[in-house]
Computed example of a mutant assay.
Amino acid sequence: MLSNHFERLSAVLKRYCALWQYVPFAHSTPPWLHTYRELGDALFALPPASLNLLLNNDDQAENWIAPFLPDLVALQDDWLSTPAPVTNALPFWLTNGIKGRKLSQITAFTAQLPSSPNHWLEWCAGKGHLGRAALFGPVHQVSSIEWQQSLCESGQRLAERHHCQQNFIHADVLQDDVSNYVHQQCGVMALHACGQLHMQLLFMAKQQKVPAVLVCPCCYHLIRDEQYTGMSQLAQQQQLTLSKLDLKLPLQQIVTTGARGQRLRDTELLWRLSFSHYVSLLTEKQVYTPLPNFAKSLLTHSYEDFCRWACAEKSIPFDASLLLDSLALGETQRQGLARMELVRQRFRKPLEYWLILDRALFLQEAGYQVDVMRFCDFSITPRNLLIKAHLAN
C-alpha cells in the first residue's frame, strides 16, 4: 500500500518537475510557459484579487488547477492511518513552561505511544518536555539525549523536581558515538527533529534493531549533502534528485499569523527582490543577489535604510538614485512571483508525502511494520505527519 502510493507520487513529481523544481527568485516569468501554455494563459488571466484568494485557500487553488493537472489533484491520502485519540490530560504542574501549541503537539504525540517497550529514548530532547509527558502514559523510563549542556541541566532539574524516571545524556548525535543509548531494549521517539537529525535516528534504529520508532520529521532541507536522493531503496530507484531548495517547499505554508507578521513577510519579500534589482541596475548584470537572514527590526525602517545595510553586507556602493527604479522592478517581480507560487505550492503536500513515505519505506525495508498518520490537527502544527513503526517478529 505505502509503496504503491509512493510510486504514484514519484511519477507525478517527475512528470511535472518543470513546474516546481526551479528557483522562483531567479525568474521574472515562469520558465515552463512554453511547455504548459494553457496553464500559463489561465494563470496570467487571473485578476490580482482572485490570485490572492487562491494563494490563501488550498482547496480553491486545487479546484482551479485541476483541469490542467488532473493526475496531481487526483492523488489521495487514503494510505494514512487513523491516530489513537487523545484521552488523558497531563497534570497541570507538569505543563508549566510549555506553550499552548507545543503542549497540544506533545499530548497528541504521546497518545500514539504503544504499550511496549517500557523504556524510551527521546532524541534531540531540549528540556525533555516530551519525555516527561510520556511517563504519564505507558512509558516507565525515559532517557533524553540533547547536545546543549544547559538544556540537559534544566531538564534534569525538572525531572528531579517532578520525581520522573528520566535521565539526560549530553551528546551531539551527529558527531558522538551514541550507539550505547540506541539499543534493542528501548524505543526511540523524536518530535520535530530536523533533517539530518531524524535521518540519523532512523539509520541507527535500523542498525541497532530497536523495537519501536515514533518520529515526526521537520526541516527536511537541513541535511549534510547538497542534494537528496532518498533513504529507501525504492526512492533511490526513482531517479528523483532534490536540492535543498526543493526540500524547503513542504515547509513554506504558515498556519496562523497576525496582520503585522504578514506585513513584515510581504515587506521582506519585496525588499529582497528590489535589492537584487538594485544590484542589477548598479552592475548592469541580470543575476539574483541573495541576502543572509537579518533582524526583522530592519523591516520597520525605510527601504533606503535596508539598501544601505544590504550594500554594506555585500560590500558594494550605495546609490540613492537607484532606489525608486529598483523598488518598482521588485514590485513587478513580486506580482509575477506570486503567480509562480500559486502553481509551485500545489506540489508542497505531494512532496512532503514523498519524503515521509521514503522514511517509512526505509523502515519497512528493514523489517518494520509501519503506519503513517496525522497525529494532530494542521492548526496545531503543519508538520503533523508521524511515522509509527515496530519491529516485526
Rank of each mutant, 00 (worst) to 15 (best):
P250F: 00
H198V: 00
Q236G: 14
D176I: 06
D225V: 02
R265P: 01
I223A: 14
P250I: 00
Q196A: 11
H162K: 11
G261Y: 02
Q253G: 05
L234G: 10
L151Q: 11
I223Q: 14
C186D: 13
D246V: 00
Q185Y: 15
D176L: 15
L197P: 01
V182A: 11
Y228M: 03
L264K: 07
R157K: 12
K206W: 11
R224C: 15
D176E: 09
G155Q: 06
L251C: 06
P211W: 07
Q149V: 03
P250G: 00
A235C: 09
L247D: 12
L174R: 07
K244L: 03
A171H: 08
C186W: 07
C218P: 15
R224N: 15
Q156I: 02
V213Y: 03
M231F: 12
Q239I: 04
K209A: 05
E153P: 02
E153Y: 03
S232Y: 02
H221K: 06
L240P: 07
L214Y: 09
R265Y: 00
Y181N: 15
L247A: 07
H183Y: 11
C194L: 10
A159W: 04
V178Q: 12
V215E: 14
R157W: 04
A190W: 06
F203R: 04
D176G: 15
P250L: 01
D177M: 01
A235W: 00
L240H: 06
D266H: 07
C216L: 01
Q207T: 02
T229I: 09
C219D: 08
Q166W: 03
V215C: 14
T267V: 01
V178C: 11
Q207D: 15
Q208S: 10
L201N: 13
G258M: 00
H198M: 07
D266Q: 10
Q185K: 11
L197S: 12
T241N: 14
H183G: 13
Q253P: 14
A190R: 03
A193G: 13
N180M: 08
M189T: 04
T257W: 01
L201S: 09
S243W: 05
L249K: 10
M231L: 15
E153D: 09
R265T: 00
M189F: 07
V173G: 13
Q184E: 08
C164M: 05
F203D: 08
A235E: 09
R260G: 11
M189H: 13
Q200A: 13
Y181A: 14
V173H: 08
Q207G: 10
